[in-house]
């Protein structure tokens, strides 16, 4: 089941915090009794335990950054040239400054299709991991 928390930059932190708090303590104790080092405990127990949540967090953050617009727009307007142009800015410039209506619609549709495919793949992986 996907997490109910989403959107927003800091929510990744909160998601991971909640996941870390949910790691099974008895496993950690067992590892400590068996004399596992901190690194080993971390990589063999904690990381696998929070992996599904991490995938979701990366997914949310990735989607967030995929549509990055405002910061780049304010700082460079995509310049110099088109070096820092994101897909959002590309569509915006095509649509609202050059008024290429149908071209913009095509870009938007491509973005939706691409993102939906990525999202479905990622969600399926999460389901499998559970």
């Amino acid at each position: 089941m996907p997490p109910k928390s989403g959107s927003g930059r800091r929510s990744c932190f909160l998601l991971l915090l909640a996941a870390l708090a949910g790691v099974d303590r008895s496993q950690l104790e067992a590892a400590a009794i068996d004399g596992a080092s901190w690194w080993r405990t971390f990589f063999k127990i904690v990381l696998p335990a929070i992996r599904p949540v991490m995938t979701i967090a990366i997914l949310i953050r990735g989607l967030d950054l995929f549509r990055l617009f405002d910061i780049v727009w304010a700082l460079t307007k995509g310049g110099p040239g088109t070096m820092t142009e994101t897909i959002s800015m590309f569509a915006y410039i095509k649509g609202f400054q050059q008024f290429e209506t149908s071209y913009t619609a095509a870009v938007a549709l491509l973005v939706i299709v691409l993102l939906s495919a990525l999202l479905m793949l990622a969600l399926k992986r999460v389901e499998l991991a559970r």
């Binding site: 996907p2 995929f66 549509r67 617009f69 897909i87 609202f96 209506t101 938007a108 549709l109 939706i112």
Partner: peptide, 18 residues
């Protein structure tokens, strides 16, 4: 319903503007 939230704004903002 929640999948609607995943749509990047740039993809819908142009039709909405029109």
């Amino acid at each position: 319903i929640v999948s609607q939230r995943m749509i990047p704004p740039i993809a819908v903002v142009f039709p909405i503007f029109l």
